[in-house]
C-alpha cells in the first residue's frame, strides 16, 4: 500500500468518523441539558407551588370596639382586656356588613369567611393601645383558609358544589368583599 492508497482509505472513513465524534459530543451536551433541566424543573416547581404561601388573603373590616363587650366594667385592666370575647366583635361586624343574612345557618357560613385568628388580631391591637376601645377600627384581618384557596385559585370555583367546601352563597360574599 503506497501513500496515495492509504490516504484514500483514510478519507473514505473520515466523514463517518467525524459524524461519530459529533454524535458523541451531542450526547454529552444532551445529558448536561437533561441534568440542568431537572434542576430547573425542581426549582421551578418548588417556586411556583410555594410562592403563594408568602401571600395571604385579607379582608378589610370596620370593627367597632364596643366597650360594653371588651371591658364592661370600664377598668381598662390588661387582664380584663386580654380575656374579652373579641370573636363577638368580628361576628357583629360581619353581620352589619351583610344585613340581609338572617338565618342561623347562613350566619354561620358568613362567619366562616374570616380566619379564626381575626379575633386575636383585634385583641393584639387593643392590648397595644387600650385607648382605642370605643372607637371604630378599620382592620385587615386574614381570610379563612378555604377563602384563601379560592382567591388564589388553588381550588378552582368550578369544582362541583357537592365536594366544595364553600357554598355558592359564600362565593358571592367573597365577590362582594373583593369589590
Amino acid at each position: 500500500m503506497n501513500n496515495g492508497e492509504r490516504n484514500t482509505l483514510i478519507r473514505a472513513g473520515l466523514s463517518r468518523r467525524h459524524r461519530g465524534d459529533r454524535v458523541f459530543r451531542l450526547a454529552g451536551l444532551a445529558d448536561i441539558c437533561v441534568a440542568l433541566a431537572f434542576l430547573a424543573l425542581l426549582f421551578g416547581s418548588i417556586f411556583t407551588k410555594g410562592y403563594t404561601a408568602f401571600r395571604q388573603t385579607v379582608v378589610l373590616l370596620e370593627v367597632h370596639l364596643d366597650p360594653g363587650i371588651i371591658d364592661p366594667l370600664g377598668s381598662r385592666d390588661v387582664r380584663a382586656l386580654s380575656r374579652a370575647d373579641y370573636g363577638v366583635l368580628i361576628k357583629t361586624t360581619l353581620r352589619d356588613a351583610f344585613p340581609q343574612v338572617t338565618t342561623r345557618r347562613h350566619k354561620r357560613e358568613l362567619y366562616a369567611l374570616v380566619s379564626s385568628g381575626a379575633a386575636f388580631e383585634v385583641r393584639h391591637r387593643v392590648l397595644e393601645d387600650p385607648g382605642i376601645v370605643g372607637r371604630t377600627l378599620a382592620l385587615w384581618v386574614p381570610a379563612s383558609d378555604d377563602v384563601d384557596m379560592i382567591v388564589k385559585d388553588v381550588i378552582p370555583r368550578a369544582v362541583a358544589p357537592a365536594v366544595r367546601r364553600l357554598s355558592d352563597r359564600q362565593l358571592a360574599w367573597i365577590d362582594t368583599l373583593a369589590d
Binding site: 459530543r25 450526547a27 454529552g28 451536551l29 445529558d31 448536561i32 441534568a35 440542568l36
Partner: peptide
C-alpha cells in the same frame, strides 16, 4: 447522564462553559 455530562465537561466544553456548568450541577 452523569457519565456523559462529565465526559462533555472534561473533554469538550470550553473553559468558560466548564466553570459555569460544573458548579450548577
Amino acid at each position: 447522564v452523569g457519565l456523559f455530562a462529565a465526559i462533555y465537561i472534561g473533554e469538550y466544553a470550553a473553559p468558560s462553559a466548564r466553570s459555569a456548568i460544573k458548579p450548577t450541577l
